[in-house]
Amino acid sequence: MKNPYRPIKAEVLDVIEETPTISTVRFKPEESITFATGQFVEITIPGVGEAPFTPSSKPSEKKVMEVTVMKVGKVTKKIHELKKGDVIGVRGPFGKGYPVDDFRDKEILVVGGGCGFAPLRSLMYELFHRSGQFKKLFFRGGCKTSKELVFKSEIDTWAERKDLDLKLTVDVGDSQWKGNTGVVTTILENIDMDCASGIAIICGPPIMMKFATKKALEMGFKEENIYLSMEKNMSCGIGKCGHCRLGTYYACKDGPVFTYDKIKNFSNIWD
């Protein structure tokens, strides 16, 4: 029988500092792992422990994977100290990602906040990869300050794309920031799309998800077309350990991506 708790050995290829607190680790698992965008993996630091991350890399890239990690706890601190050649472990992928096939011929609005940028980069790669299949693509992103904006140079190239309408905002502006200031919902106004038939994808800190979801409903998106990536305290990844329960679901196997209609009746979903 397959052992679901055993990590696969992986070699660190590179560690890229995105911001002082956020780094991207590029690694190569010994056995190739294919994931759908939005699914997550568990990364092991030998002798320290394990933590869940949604890959930020291209799902189509089969041999190498990237996770973008904010320094918040024991494991993430060690991840920041990794060097090329170090050995880590990886388990997964787990759960259900974005059903990109179902987005065919639709207009898509992607809303990202702070930490939500990492999983969304992977999604954007996939959407760009299949760009012709969708009617229109919008990206609206926000973070606290311009210093906390990850993938800056990459997002600059997104801004040039003809198939994407992109707008960014920061909560608090500074001298270097030329764009919009204000929370992300302020750049959700006047978007030229048919919300009633469109798809909204929201990923970020809970408070941002809460308000962006409220806004999306006001804009006319259908509950079943609002996709939310729910952060829970994942451990086993397979619906056994009980840590990530969300109402009658486990975020690890039934999510982490849920449509709003599935979870709206559970209590305190944003806590």
Partner: peptide, 11 residues
């Protein structure tokens, strides 16, 4: 049935 996956602290 809830459990925790705990790694031995030995690199």
């Amino acid at each position: 049935h809830c459990f925790l996956l705990y790694d031995q602290k030995d690199a």
